[in-house]
Write a protein that binds this DNA or RNA. Structure first.
Lengths: 351, 351
DNA sequence: CTGAAAGCGCTTACAG
DNA sequence: CTGAAAGCGCTTACAG
């Protein structure tokens, strides 16, 4: 990161020179290949306007010298870093708690690696950190940013929306019509699928554990309402502040207190559903016999709960791949817009 | 990452110029401050040999211009990247499945950020990826590497052990006496603590679910043996190939089949224990009444299982902080050696 | 198609 | 304490 700010760097620098290997330079390659350094550079950057002979000579020289570009030197002139920031906004511990996040991170790293682009992970939970991220991003250290924001209406979005730096969000950013493109699952339709499934099972008192502060949360609640609006089914919504196990358990307790005869619950995330399951067991209710439980995400935990969760699968691997694809296009100044990916009902044992 | 290899870069480059902001340079600051660019550089890098007046002038000029160093230009001369690679070795999905990993990643990122150093995440599950990581690291793109290896005896270790690039491993790397320093919990003693606890509960047939292929796994098994070696307690060890939920369930099934009268199980990780718990329930055994279950890690899931897990806490936040500390020292060419951190028994309900 | 040259924005001895 | 200058390793018009 370098003293991004202009503050002096106490001692961390200076003492440690030569962290970078010396290695052969482009001039070494040029010499071995018997051409000018300009020609070497050309083959390195596209091999156009280079004779077959020169090309071959350079390629073998590269191999024999074990040459590797010096990215700093390159970036200095191209103004490109070949790195992208993966910014994790807001509540760290919680976000990290979510298995979805790991999938996203893993898949983005992989997709980026295929393009030889580095992923730089940045956390942004305090205002100070937000400033740091902003300075870093604005400072041209990265070519673009992948924004994973838990809470909708993230302040970073506004800054990114200025378009100074290409950015893509995961999930539709809330707040004022944002200019930042995003990739998300079809949350509303997914919620409808689950709610319809619960109704089809003959459930009459279907509660929902919603969290509208989280990206996608509003849509999931909407889907639930869309389906139940025209049914003779009792509705009851409890709101939580995040998608955590603990919040799910607390919400379930509330639901049980307010509506002891509840016979189904749709939790807006698998983690929430897992918490609800734990609470249900504590209360002596059988799942799905007494109460059916539906989750959302089809994350790893859906297979590890007892009973395994019936849930809505969101194609996270594709979300990640598409985020990278959109970002890369944006960086190349190619047209690219938001994408919505289809969800799917995964029937297991909880509902 | 840049075409690290010398292969031509089809189209991804070139099209996207000016990804980096233009912004003020050190010369702009110098002009505003009324000093030479050398002086500005000096205050940026330690402020030594600079008069108070010049210092003040530069500082205000930096602020008024909104100056930010160009890390590429800096790196080009200092040969330092101010970035560190966080390398995740081997079985990605599985590693990511482990909540421990998230904690490590989060804490390392945070600790590094305090030093204004970027964390570059790299995955290394195939041989091709391993080469890529090696080229990248050797190419001087990072000042050091934090190696998180699931399987002991990781081949990357051998390469890193050459000491060309500073590196620190999480957990003691297995295989031939490695020269790579590491930070780990006192696995052996932790395992002893748990085993002693089980014995103290009066358990007579204590099984273990071990995984010696994973870093730290051998030590945990050793701790179990250390304690039971001199006791009149029935031992039974089942080996798994990783620390997963599924492996835990499978191992428990085996344990139950071989030793139906088993009354305690020590699983080498919480995830393994969670799997064992699920299997135990399926088999109709009550925990801890019929069978006591002990885990290892005190990860998030230890609080979410039913019943909550009695486990061995390993200070992962400290492991991460120490890894960063050791790596930073190594980068500065200061002496630094491996560290072993104490564990602690956390009593909950499963044992 | 290719070479020579300029320039990217910094740091760091070297004189003073 | 400070300025002028060299140089880090690349890319890219510009001529040819």
């Amino acid at each position: 990161m370098g003293s991004d700010t202009a503050q002096p760097h106490p001692k961390s620098r200076g003492a440690a020179r030569r962290a970078m290997r010396r290695g052969p330079t482009i001039d070494d390659v040029a010499e071995v290949a018997g051409v000018s350094r300009g020609t070497v550079s050309r083959v390195l950057n596209g091999a156009r306007y280079v004779s077959p002979a020169a090309l071959k000579a350079v390629e073998r020289a590269v191999r024999s010298t074990g040459y590797t570009v010096n990215q700093s030197a390159r970036s200095l002139v191209t103004k490109q870093s070949n790195a992208v920031a993966f910014v994790l906004s807001e509540p760290q511990e919680r976000l990290f708690e979510d298995p979805n996040f790991s999938v996203l991170l893993r898949c983005c790293t992989q997709a980026l690696a295929e393009h030889d682009i580095s992923l730089i992970l940045m956390l942004e939970s305090s205002d100070a950190e937000r400033d740091r991220v902003l300075r870093y991003v604005r400072g041209g250290h990265v070519d673009g940013v992948l924004l994973i924001s838990a809470h909708s209406g993230d302040p970073l979005i506004a800054d990114l929306a200025t378009g100074v730096v290409p950015a893509v969000a995961c999930g539709k950013p809330g707040g004022p019509e944002s200019a930042v493109p995003y990739v998300a699952a079809e949350d509303t339709e997914g919620a409808r699928q689950m709610t319809r499934h619960l109704v089809a099972q003959g459930r009459k008192r279907i509660g929902m554990i919603a969290c509208t502060q989280v990206v996608g949360g509003r849509e999931r609640l909407q889907g639930y309402r869309d389906v139940l609006g025209r049914k003779a089914v009792k509705r009851l919504v409890v709101h939580t502040s995040d998608y955590s196990f603990a919040a799910g358990a607390a919400a379930m307790r509330e639901l049980l207190a307010e509506s002891p005869d509840i016979d189904a619950v749709f939790a807006a995330s698998d983690l929430l559903a897992a918490g609800a399951l734990a609470e249900l067991r504590r209360a002596g209710r059988r799942v799905p016999d007494d109460v059916a439980v539906g989750g959302f995400d089809d994350s790893r935990i859906a297979r590890e709960t007892d009973p395994p969760l019936t849930t809505i699968r969101q194609p996270l691997e594709r979300v990640a791949a598409d985020m990278v694809d959109v970002l890369l296009r944006l960086i190349r100044r190619e047209p690219a817009s938001s994408r919505l990916l289809p969800t799917e009902l995964v029937k297991r044992e909880s509902a």
